[in-house]
Every structure is written in C-alpha cells, then in structure tokens.
Design a protein around this nucleic acid. Structure first.
Lengths: 250, 250
DNA sequence: CCAAAAGTGTTGAACTTACACCCATGA
DNA sequence: TCATGGGTGTAAGTTCAACACTTTTGG
C-alpha cells in the first residue's frame, strides 16, 4: 500500500486525529443547474477511477452545520451556501471494502457515521478547488453519475429524492438559479428535478399565481430568437409562501 | 456530585466506553395515541424534575438503525417498532449545562452528536420499563410536555413537525392504531396530528376513496351509543398508495 | 421571415369545503 | 329516546391537464 492516496491519508492522519471528532463524517451532495440539466459535484480521487462525494469531518469545537459550510466553502469558494441536512448513514459495513488494504492505524479507516447534506449552488458562482485527496472535480449530470466509492451512490439517490420532496417547501429555485433568470429556465429546472415535462402555459400561470416572481424591465439579449423576459424572486412573498408550502401536484 | 444520578453514570462509564461509539447518541421521540390524543413517551430521571427523551448509544459493531430498535425494544418491550430517522443534532453546545457539574472523566459528559428517530407505537401494546437512569416513564400529551433536558424540547418539536409532513407518505395510522379501529378513532388521530378539526363526512369519503381501509364484519360493542364499525388497513393498497403519497391538503 | 418566447382562452375532470339530511342502533 | 355513528347529497369554488390560439420580437 504505497500508492499516492495511502501516503496522503497517512500524512493527514495525525492532524485529523487531533482536530476532528472520530467516527463522524459529513458527505455533501452539491446540486447545480447548467445547460438545462441538473448536475452534482463529484471528485475524482488521486487513486484512479475512484469517484466520491465531497465531504469532510467535524472539528472538536465546531457546530456540525458550520462544519458542513466550511467543507463546502473550502471546496467551492462560495460562502452562505444553501444547505439542508437530509439523512444520516450509519450502517456498520458502509465503508468496508474501500479501506480494506489500508493500515489499521489510518484515521480514515475507523468506522464512520456520516451525516448527509445536500447543497444548492448557483452554478455560475462556483470555482471548484481540489485538495490533496482529489485531482479533479467535475459537475456530472444526475442521470449520468458513475459508480461512487462506498455508499455514496445511495447517499446521492436519497438526496435527490429529498430534493424532489422539498421542491414546494424550500427555496430551491432561488438557490439553484442566478439572481436573474428567464421563465423557460425556471421551467427547465423544475422539469429536471421532477424528471418530467411540464406544460408551459400552465407552469407560467401557476408561477404567476404564486406571486413569488418579479418581472424585471430587462430581457436577455443575444439569443437566436426573441429575447426572453428576465425575472427574479420576490423574496418576501417567496419565503412567506414556503412556510406553508406551495402546491403539491405537478 | 454524589447524587444517585452521578453514581449511576460513573458506574456505567466503563462499560459504555468499551462497548459504544463515542460522540454519537440516539434520541427517540416515541409517539402513541390514546384517549383521542397524541402522546409521547418521556422519562423522569432519577434526579428530581429532570425529564428526558428515551435514548441510548450505538455499539461499536452495530448498525445505527439496529441500535435505535434495540434501545426502544429494551424500553417498551415492542419488537419491530416503526422507526423513522428524521434529523441529526450537532450543535457544539447542545449538552452544555446539563453535565456541567459532573466529573470530566464521565463518559456521558463528552460532546455528543445525536441522531433523532421518531417511533410510532400502538399504545396498547407497550409495557414501559425503567432503567438505572430513570425512575418513571410516562405518556405525556404532546400539548403538555414539560421542560426537557438539553435540547430535547427542540428534538421533540422537530419530530412532530416531521410527523405532520409524513402523514401522507408513511403508514402513520397503521402504526399508531391497534389492528382494528373505528372511523371516528382514525379521524381523531388525524386531527390530533394535524392540530385541527376535520369534517366528518368529507374525511369518511376521502378514506373510502383511497381504498386503504377494509371494513370488518364486527362492531365495537359496549359503548354508550351505536356500536361503530371496525376497520383495518388493507396493507397492499396502503403501501402502494404511500409510494406516491396520498393527498396533500387537509 | 422564422423560431422562440409571452400570454390568454377554454374545457372537463377532479377535488375541496361546508353544509345539511337521512337512517341505524345501543343502552 | 337520544346521542353517536354511518352514509349520502349538493352546491360553490378551486385547481389541473391538455390543447389551441394569438402576439411579440431578435437576428
């Protein structure tokens, strides 16, 4: 076991042991929206063909939610990320296999219970940074995710399911889109999350009825066709509406 | 610090240290339904006026979900409890205060991140057992909960909120009611969870439309008035219906 | 001019809410 | 007989799905 990943983990073991709580980790499913499709941020580890969700550990004197924010800020450069804790994964064997051939003294080989968060990020505001464990970070379409390490595929699937359930209860559009967006973009986002086509006219009317959008004076110039109107969210109405949830049936 | 609670904790410290994962605990909000009102199971600790949610720790070689089941089985005697993990609580200061005056060597004084589960139990099938830390266990109406230790009031509130959201997605009636029940009982359960009155005729029609109930030949004799019909759930239809959720609007 | 975007109209079905009314029946 | 439970009727209002039609406008 002398590959680069092993060496890197060994190097970090002592620091992690000193600073972080043992047995508890955080895994993040970071959603972004680009080119009309929903994507998640995946890391390719410095060991070949090993994909992982971004994650990290909780410092001994740090709130758990703060740890999740810190982990993602280090990774994406974005402050004030919208984060939602959705489930904690605690199977005894969940990381078995992955660290099999590592030395038992490796801090990362201990049993971990992992708290899952999903994050919503405006794709355009992210500059991904790699760390010592990962040589590349990529946005991957949710329908084309590769096999991930440990139980990360399951964690991702549960995050996506929760995202769907949360669509009418959390400011999902607000956090996945840039400040200004067009109606077709918003519709495509909803379609991507729900995994089905929606009727344009009805979608328009429904959004209008909610009253959560403010139509701006500007339009988006430069496209090949008619310039679509730009909208932004009316934060006051949006947040108030979410208290009781929007409509259920799509 | 020589009161009974301190002594008991000290006595258990070594065993817990050997057998359980540090820094991780489980707290359970156990819901039951009795006398037309929704109740939760609370423990009165052997220190006076200290109320707590039932909880415990995860063994080093045990799945987290199994730990939750074990903890509740020891407490209630019920196997196969319906359990739903709803949120994990990880504030750094969440247990601060409570163990302030305890010796630092106490295993329970370390920082804990607590995984919250809510449980649904048929009230009639429970025989509560106390343990060395609690001298009594009581079912308390959700609207009359006392002040609980640490952040347990918050944990309870979040469990109740999640229970409401889950009403159309989880077999909540099935797990809170005895096998056979009457339509007024089912309606009272829904009213208790949602915290509002529902129209009887419409409730009846809605349940009928779902097709999740099977009307039995028997009636419940012995009441002061007309004997109400007994129903049970049609498990096949019920489970299938829950896959996509029932209706939203109550 | 064309294709995309914006906006409106319509229709039937389904569902909700809020009543009211009738019948059955156990003690 | 009377309070409770069971069951149905109805009317108004809302929402949704599906479809079609018109208008606008950038390049």
């Amino acid at each position: 076991m002398k590959d680069l990943l092993s060496k890197t983990i060994l190097k970090w073991s002592e620091t992690l042991h000193k600073e972080c709580l043992p047995h508890i980790s955080i895994d993040c499913v970071v959603f972004g929206f680009h080119n009309n499709s929903l994507k998640i941020l995946l890391l390719e580890l410095i060991r070949e063909n090993t994909w992982s969700l971004p994650g990290g550990y909780i410092k001994k004197v740090e709130n758990m939610d703060d740890a999740a924010h810190r982990i993602l800020q280090e990774r994406t450069g974005v402050r004030d990320i919208f984060l939602n804790q959705f489930k904690t994964f605690g199977k005894f064997h969940r990381s078995e296999g992955f660290f099999k051939e590592f030395d038992d003294s490796f801090w990362l080989k201990q049993r971990f219970i992992s708290v899952g968060y999903y994050a919503l990020i405006d794709y355009t505001s992210v500059t991904v940074r790699n760390d010592e464990f990962s040589h590349s970070s990529k946005w991957i379409d949710v329908s084309k995710t590769p096999t991930l390490m440990m139980d990360h595929n399951q964690i991702f699937q549960e995050a996506l399911a929760q995202l769907r359930r949360d669509l009418n209860y959390k400011p999902i559009g607000l956090n996945l889109l840039p400040e200004k967006f067009t109606m077709p973009e918003l519709q495509k986002l909803y379609e991507a999350i729900l995994g089905k086509k929606l009727n344009r006219g009805n979608f328009f009317r429904k959004m209008k009825r909610y009253g959560i959008l403010t139509k701006l004076e500007e339009t988006r110039k430069g496209g090949a066709h008619k310039a679509p109107d730009l909208y932004c969210f009316n934060l006051e109405v949006y947040n108030k509406a979410l208290e009781n949830g929007l409509q259920e049936n799509w």
